[in-house]
Amino acid sequence: MLSVTNVGRRFPGGVQALHDVSLSLRESDFVALLGPSGCGKSTLLRLIAGLDQPDSGRLEWNDGPPRSGDIGYVFQDATLLPWATAEDNVFLPLRLRGESRETAMPRVHAALLGVGLAGFEKARPRQLSGGMRMRVSIARALVTQPRLLLMDEPFAALDEFTRHKLQADLLDVWRQAGCTVVFVTHSVYEAAFLAHRIVLMTPRPGRIDREIASSLITGPDTRLDPAYAALVADVSRAMGEALR
């Protein structure tokens, strides 16, 4: 789907955020970018989204450059329009593409249903909990049926119970949507639970240290599964070595 080859990014002021990063994304991948704060995970996500440009290297899309709606983006905060209802927030990407409200509403309601928010269409962000706001944000990213979903530490600000529920629900949504997901996190547990490919990044300058494949089939009891515990141990060990 996308090849990132030898990409580098230096910010004004001389900070080298990324150095010689190469990564290949395939259809229906679930990739976790794992690393400590400041290792360039979010910068890499922004480069993939086209929100920033690399200073060196290149990004190549196999099927040509993405069109509006081909990429969905979920930020660390839900970043909803506070004055708009859940429905209008999810409608936003379609509205910006020029679609009419009438034709878009069935897909908007389906997206809200898909994230478990049926019945909350007219609620405004301040009437929703943090977890529900994040669900609206995910519905907004999915409503265009993107080929690639980029998620930048979306559950980092949530409590553990909500985070676990949303992680399980995200996997359900991903299986149904069939899109490629790149999920930025600094949690080894989260990366091990969600992703099939865990890409470890090291800081200053941000570079990819190694990639760990996971064959874990995630279900309700995964967190109690010794294979999950072993994977967490492997990833933690690898992260420790990478940061040494």
């Binding site: 509006s68 930020f75 329009l81 936003l92 990407p93 593409r97």
Partner: peptide
Amino acid sequence: PPELNDLFRLYGANRWRTMALLRLP
């Protein structure tokens, strides 16, 4: 928030659409 400005850019909103739907409200 800059994230919302990014979101408008991601979906190809031009300057005036961003003004009307984000910055003015």
